[in-house]
């Protein structure tokens, strides 16, 4: 019983924060709300017996990526969006792609909801088939990661290297060595 309550709580925080993320004018606020959302998400992960992922989420996402976003926002002194007409108009009344996008998002939710409701096998509770022990064992996780997925692991490291170099090159001021 309490599980479902925590679930709804965490899920509620998550969804509301996300909605607020896209609803803020100031990107700084958006970033902060997203951090909150990530925290809730981490809670959900814990509930799914995935402690490693939860911790990784906090460290990587909330800790690193969001901080990066914050830095960039502050660096660019990101101007606020043109508020006046934007605030007043309902998403469905905004011109062009915005309207289309809003509509499509709604349609997507409906489609996914429909699909999920129809698929009966998904009704089963999450933990019904196996116990948590296997899933939450970080040691097991490590073994599988470095054993079966070693190649992907190494490739990812190269990917990060490339991304780092790319970011440095792209963000350079012109004329600097």
């Amino acid at each position: 019983m309490p599980e479902i309550v925590t679930f709804y709580l965490l899920a509620g925080i998550l969804v509301v924060s996300s909605a607020l993320v896209i609803g803020q004018r100031n990107p700084m606020y958006s970033v902060l709300f997203l951090i909150v959302a990530f925290a809730a998400l981490a809670g959900l992960y814990i509930q799914l017996d995935a402690p490693f992922v939860a911790v990784a989420q906090i460290i990587i996402y909330a800790g690193a990526i969001m901080v990066l976003f914050l830095f960039v926002v502050m660096l660019l002194n990101a101007p606020q969006e043109d508020a006046a007409e934007w605030d007043r108009t309902h998403p469905l009344r905004r011109p062009g792609i915005a309207r289309v996008g809003a509509v499509l998002a709604g349609v997507l939710i409906l489609q996914l909801a429909y699909a999920l409701v129809r698929a009966n096998e998904l009704q089963a509770p999450v933990g019904s088939q196996t116990g948590p022990a296997i899933v939450s064992n970080v040691r097991e996780l490590g073994k599988v990661l470095f054993d079966r997925h070693a190649f992907a692991f190494e490739a990812t490291s190269i990917l990060i290297l490339v991304a780092m170099v790319g970011a440095v090159v792209l963000a350079r001021r012109e004329g600097e060595s």
């Binding site: 599980e3 479902i4 679930f7 899920a11 959900l44 509930q47 799914l48 996914l112 999920l116 409701v117 698929a119 998904l122 009704q123 089963a124 509770p125 999450v126 933990g127 019904s128």
Partner: peptide, 8 residues
């Protein structure tokens, strides 16, 4: 036990 589709 939380049903899967909740998460989904």
């Amino acid at each position: 036990m939380i049903p899967l589709h909740h998460y989904l």
